[in-house]
Design a protein around this nucleic acid. Structure first.
Lengths: 195, 195
DNA sequence: ATTATCTATAGATCTATAGATAATGC
DNA sequence: ATTATCTATAGATCTATAGATAATGC
């Protein structure tokens, strides 16, 4: 029954990874410890030897999800000649809209996160700050408004757009909303009216 | 024990109103039927004579919450010489950020709603469409982009901004984010860079 | 000997149903 | 007689804990 320390550590990491996906898919209250542990091939009883509480896991899984999302942004930017367009293309896409378990945690858990304790909200906050830093680098200095404000507006726009696009049953409207947000993103970055 | 038909109808409405608040405060999975009924001064047992299921109540309460939010927008607009500013002032405010139970359902339940069945998502969709119509009237025709796209971007921006502002533990950053979104709203409406 | 994970369980809560109660409405 | 609401309960699930088991690590 007992496994090596290395395996135990790997199991712990596995549980956090599984949780970061399942919490995004079903919400913090939508999945129980039994299913979270089962997702990692373990049973419920071992949970409290690895984690203090479900809330503790929620905080760890949220941090991991946000860090993964930030890495995704960074790598999208590093690999493209038009970094802003790259971010817009993957974030405001039908693919991301459908990808609830692996997509942006701010979209998958935004309203859930707002109801959590500071312990769980902090990882989201750190992730938001990291996202804003990435966005600031994509915003041209000078022009209208400071880059910090532009980044905050841009992140709000993108998170809001994908959230709304996931709620909509009307797929055409959902598509149009993502397109409208993409167009607006370019306007924010360009600091001038489109067309 | 039995009450008049009029009273029974009033009780039903009361449960829906209570639910529209409590779901927003705690999420669909964060409150049980017992507490929902208790909030209306009733007991759990009567629930299924009034509603088909918890999901049925979720749909009804979501519709009521969205309709109430739409009315709030309409009345803010009707009563002001600068309607857009009025919407920005109440929506992107610290007051609205703190008002989870009575504030915008798209913010309070956005990520929860995205995980619900079409039955529950539809009321949100109808509310989104109503909000977009109101916003379209506030967007000047001509200029950059069509009013429909501008309204979609504006709603996404506002919903995203208040959602993020509620997650943030850092209140100063939360305030600045709301301000940045307000500034961006004016740019969208004006169709030209600020400053 | 230590300990990672297991089975088992406590005690609370969840949605939903059954049947009793008592007031309405015919 | 009908019916809105009540108490009570079924059966499932939730978080958390207790103690057994068996493999690791000294």
């Amino acid at each position: 029954m007992r496994v090596s320390r290395a395996q135990a550590q790997a199991n712990r990491e596995m549980v956090i990874n599984v949780a970061s996906r399942l919490f995004r898919e079903r919400g913090f209250d939508g999945i129980g410890l039994k299913d979270l542990m089962k997702g990692a091939g373990l049973t419920q009883g071992g949970f409290y030897k690895q984690f203090e509480s479900k809330e503790d896991l929620a905080a760890l899984a949220s941090r991991r999800a946000m860090e993964s999302a930030t890495r995704r942004w960074s790598s999208a930017i590093a690999s493209s000649p038009d970094p802003l367009q790259e971010v817009i293309d993957f974030y405001l896409s039908a693919g991301h809209r459908g990808e609830t378990g692996d997509g942006c945690p701010l979209v998958a858990l935004g309203s859930d996160a707002a109801r959590q304790s500071a312990e769980v909200r902090r990882p989201f906050e750190d992730g938001i700050k990291a996202h804003l830093q990435v966005l600031e680098e994509l915003m041209p200095a000078g022009g209208a408004g400071d880059v910090s404000s532009k980044a905050m507006a841009a992140l709000s726009l993108m998170v809001g757009a994908v959230t709304l696009s996931r709620i909509l049953v009307d797929e055409k409207l959902s598509d149009r909303l993502l397109e409208a947000a993409a167009a607006e993103m370019k306007r924010i970055a360009a600091s001038e009216p489109a067309d």
